[in-house]
């Protein structure tokens, strides 16, 4: 355990050498936008929203998977980064059918919130309007692929927090999708423990508890947070 000192947006910061740029930044109150990151669950660096500039490094680095280093000069906010982040969101909105007005997660949606905060006021790319199904076969939850952004949070909590291994990814590219077990209706899954962690982790309205309608979705994220912090603090080990 050794401390590292470096700067984030001109601010002098110190953090443990094992910390990621994202963790170090959040400790000093600097918010870096993320979509695939979920506290307590391992990172995959997939959404590319948390990319930051580091002086002397030609490539942009994902804050969620890059460890801090001595003397690093990190810039989390620039015209170039803001532009890329807006474009990433635009690409997501054009990719599937994100219609906020009729979405259970309206005003409880991380994608929507990010679009507001990052100033994405319109989408310049052609909407692809793909035809994705809605899986309503589960007795408690539903999965609307039209709202999915493939952050794979649900897959990771299902495998690594719950340990059920129900959720998976199939296909590739624009045809990739979250599936249950061997790509079967969620309701027929034999591994699903009905714990609902996938629903709690979902940033959009792709996974939802049945019985809610437009804008009614409330995620019990605190429950998930408790589980992962208890894990990290080893509160379950006597």
């Amino acid at each position: 355990m050794a401390a590292r000192t470096f700067t984030i947006d001109g601010k002098h910061v110190s953090a443990d050498e094992s910390a990621t740029i994202l963790e170090a930044a959040s400790e000093v109150g600097i918010t870096i936008p993320t979509l695939c990151h979920l506290d307590g669950v391992y990172d995959v660096g997939a959404c590319r929203l948390c990319l930051v500039e580091v002086t002397g490094v030609p490539k942009l680095l994902p804050a969620c998977t890059t460890r801090v280093a001595e003397g690093m000069d990190i810039n989390t906010d620039s015209e170039r980064l803001r532009k890329y982040r807006r474009m990433t969101l635009e690409l997501l909105f054009a990719e599937r059918n994100h219609v906020c007005a009729v979405c259970v997660a309206n005003s409880h949606c991380e994608l929507q919130t990010l679009a507001y905060t990052l100033g994405m006021d319109h989408v310049r790319y052609e909407y692809t309007f793909p035809r994705w199904p809605v899986d309503n076969t589960h007795s408690l939850f539903g999965m609307d692929h039209n709202r999915c952004i493939m952050c794979t949070r649900c897959v990771r909590v299902c495998w690594h927090i719950e340990g059920a291994g129900t959720k998976n990814v199939s296909g590739r590219g624009a045809r990739s999708q979250v599936i249950s077990d061997l790509n079967q209706p969620w309701g027929t899954s034999e591994t699903c423990t009905r714990c609902g962690k996938c629903v709690m982790s979902c940033p959009t309205g792709a996974l939802f508890a049945k019985g809610v309608t437009v804008s009614e979705m409330e995620r019990d994220r605190t429950k998930l947070e408790f589980i992962v912090t208890a894990r990290e603090k080893k509160q379950w080990i006597a």
């Binding site: 997939a46 590319r48 990719e95 493939m150 590219g173 045809r175």
Partner: peptide, 13 residues
């Protein structure tokens, strides 16, 4: 592969 957004959705556009 569909993992990161720029490649998955960017190549489509």
């Amino acid at each position: 592969c569909g993992k990161c957004i720029p490649c998955r959705a960017g190549t489509v556009q």
